[in-house]
């Protein structure tokens, strides 16, 4: 197998506070291969956005990577200086966030922003940069791209703005795209457009992507593989069809079953009792055990088996077996 584009090795993020150290990301490992979309799902506070921010070196102090490694194409980047990291961001890692307005400078035309980014990261002439910018806008489906180069961000609708952000993220031809809730602020019809766009661009460019979202439907339609996070830890990781179709971790199972779409026509939705623990009140053992129907004594003491690199998909001592699910 080729070298993965992004490898996380036991990535751990700590936030020291005066009440003790919080651990929003705990021992997370995974690989993303070229051309692969890894969907990262979890509920709010599961650590999925924090993981993305750790990869691109944008953790807000006092949060910091306290253990583990981030490897971009085999090269360790978690110990890069701020200046080195700035060259990585935009050039080798493209980023798309939830709110397109925060990623765009309201005072510059989108043409200026695109050309600037291209000139900063690639060794091309000014006119070449402009040409590439137009080509980039074209590629993300902005109609009459040449004429819109002089437009300001506020002159675009929400969906078009997100397209511009994607063009901006991709203009320096990065090998990895990190998209954090890219469609959450958009309407359903526009969301479908953006998802289709992201999928097409990843396929065409052979780019690896990490898609962070809370929306199971978006993940199911977009991702090749899925990582399910719970309370900062990786609960389960595997191919999308298996995660959605035959979940092994009881949390994944509960998450899938509680979406209204899954139980269409039933009077009641399946629900997981309780809520995710706060970071400062983490239970011992498996973080999910207080809500888990399968929990036994072992789960209250030992965190689940490690996942991400070994064969085991789910961090669970008593995973759901396939014959069980069928019954």
């Amino acid at each position: 197998m080729d070298m993965p584009v992004l490898s996380l090795r036991n990535l751990t993020v700590d936030i020291p506070t005066r009440h003790g150290t919080l651990r929003p990301v705990d021992d997370v490992s995974w690989d993303i291969a070229a051309g692969e979309i890894l969907g990262v799902v979890g509920e709010s506070g599961a650590g999925k956005s924090m993981t993305g921010n750790a990869v691109i070196g944008l953790l807000d102090p006092p949060a910091h990577i306290s253990a583990g490694e981030v490897l971009l194409e085999g090269e360790r980047i978690d110990n890069y200086t701020l200046a080195q990291m700035r060259r990585v961001r935009g050039k080798r890692i493209g980023m798309v966030f939830q709110d397109p307005l925060t990623s765009l400078n309201p005072l510059l035309t989108i043409g200026e922003q695109l050309s600037e980014t291209i000139l900063r990261h690639l060794d091309v002439s000014r006119s070449e940069a402009d040409a590439r910018a137009i080509q980039g806008l074209d590629e993300v489906g902005i109609p009459s791209a040449r004429n819109r180069m002089g437009a300001y961000p506020h002159e675009f609708s929400g969906g078009m703005r997100q397209r511009v952000v994607i063009a901006l993220a991709l203009c320096a031809e990065p090998t990895l795209l990190i998209a954090d809730e890219p469609t959450t602020a958009l309407d359903v019809s526009v969301q479908a457009q953006i998802i289709a766009l992201l999928k097409r661009l990843c396929r065409e460019r052979g780019m690896a992507a990490m898609l962070v979202t809370h929306d199971m439907g978006v993940i199911a339609e977009t991702a090749d593989r899925v990582a399910v996070m719970y309370a900062g830890r990786l609960a389960e990781i595997g191919p999308v069809s298996q995660i959605v179709g035959q979940p092994r971790h009881p949390y994944t199972d509960g998450l899938m079953a509680s979406t209204p779409a899954a139980s269409a026509g039933q009077a009641r939705l399946r629900q997981i009792p309780g809520a995710m623990p706060r970071l400062n009140r983490m239970p011992d053992g498996c973080a999910f055990h207080p809500r888990c129907p399968r929990a036994q004594d072992k789960c209250r003491v030992n965190p689940g088996p490690k996942v991400g690199t070994a064969d085991e998909r789910a961090a669970c001592w008593f995973p759901i077996e396939q014959d069980e699910a069928a019954a």
């Binding site: 289709a196 199911a220 999308v240």
Partner: peptide, 15 residues
Amino acid sequence: AAPRLDAFGREVEPP
């Protein structure tokens, strides 16, 4: 347009 759980890799023609 609504994303569906059972449609892995569904190639939708977006609206």
